[in-house]
């Protein structure tokens, strides 16, 4: 689904002493089917940016076009259109476990599809399917979401958005606080969902995730776009200027190059890629 930001500015608390410019003129075009990562240091405006995509925030100036939906500063939007948009654009918040409220996991996950007009039976079915996908089996269906562990809560919350089958899936720091295995499982799930045709946006601090999963990376710095392009191109730049770290494999590769090993220049995504590259370099 094409999404276009046209010179978007956003000010928190406009015309008060607390005024803060969170976005300072964002121009972006998302077309084609890519897994896009949005990175940047704390407070750079990533969450603010993505909340424009499902019209939780209206830009202070500029415009965001999401398919045929226009999110501008003042244009009238009908309640029905907003609902349509939010059905298409699923947003998983930073720490989504705080949104759980139903007495059972099953009910909580079927909440979104029900809101979007799916009949009850079908919504429950979708909930079960989504729970299976995030790795929670039948034993969880009738448990209270409040007696789960933090990671399980997170999975329930993610399932709660997946159950609505959005065309665009936005994930705000989905792996923060998860253990490495759970983190990899969820990321692989998002990759899978992406390959099934959903556009995925990933907001993160973790450059390893970017290296491994992203097709395109956008660096936000102080409410502006500092970099937009191929992850590989970004890792060859000096990342410290954005207060970001290089991914582990790139750091390792750079250290090897410094010590005289000539690595073939190619796309490194996983540890296996790096191992292969080292092997080739040794054989030469």
């Amino acid at each position: 689904m094409p999404i276009i930001f046209k010179d978007v500015k956003y000010v928190y608390g406009a015309k008060t002493p607390f005024e803060y410019d969170a976005l300072n003129g964002i121009d972006l075009t998302f077309e084609g089917h890519k897994l896009t990562a949005i990175v940047g240091k704390t407070g750079s405006g990533k969450s603010t940016l993505v909340q424009h995509i499902n019209a939780l925030l209206r830009p202070t100036s500029g415009e965001v076009l999401i398919d045929d939906f226009v999110n501008g500063p003042k244009n009238k939007i009908k309640a029905k259109e907003i609902k349509e948009l939010r059905k298409k654009v699923g947003l998983v918040f930073q720490f989504p476990e705080y949104q759980l409220f139903q007495e059972t996991v099953e009910k909580d996950v079927s909440f979104a599809p029900k809101n979007f007009g799916v009949p009850r039976e079908e919504a429950i079915e979708k909930a079960h399917e989504a729970l299976q996908r995030v790795g929670l089996d039948e034993s969880f269906y009738s448990r209270s979401p409040f007696e789960l562990s933090g990671g399980e809560k997170r999975k329930v919350a993610i399932a709660g958005i997946l159950a609505a089958h959005p065309d665009v899936l936005i994930l705000d720091e989905p792996t923060a606080g998860l253990d490495p295995a759970a983190s990899k499982e969820t990321m692989d799930l998002f990759k899978q969902i992406h390959s099934e045709g959903t556009d995925v946006f990933l907001v993160t601090h973790d450059m390893n995730l970017v290296a491994r999963y992203a097709d395109r990376v956008i660096v936000i710095d102080d409410g502006r776009i500092a970099f937009d392009g191929d992850p590989k191109a970004l890792f060859n730049e000096d990342l410290e200027q954005y207060s970001l770290d290089n991914p582990d494999i790139y750091r390792f590769a750079k250290a090897l190059t410094k010590r005289g090993l000539k690595l073939p220049t190619r796309d490194l995504r996983t540890v296996e890629d790096l191992a292969k590259a080292i092997k080739e370099a040794k054989h030469e």
Partner: peptide, 16 residues
Amino acid sequence: HRIMNAQASRGVDFKH
């Protein structure tokens, strides 16, 4: 604010 945003993303309409 945060919870309202999260629920709005799940299709809750707090106004109408």
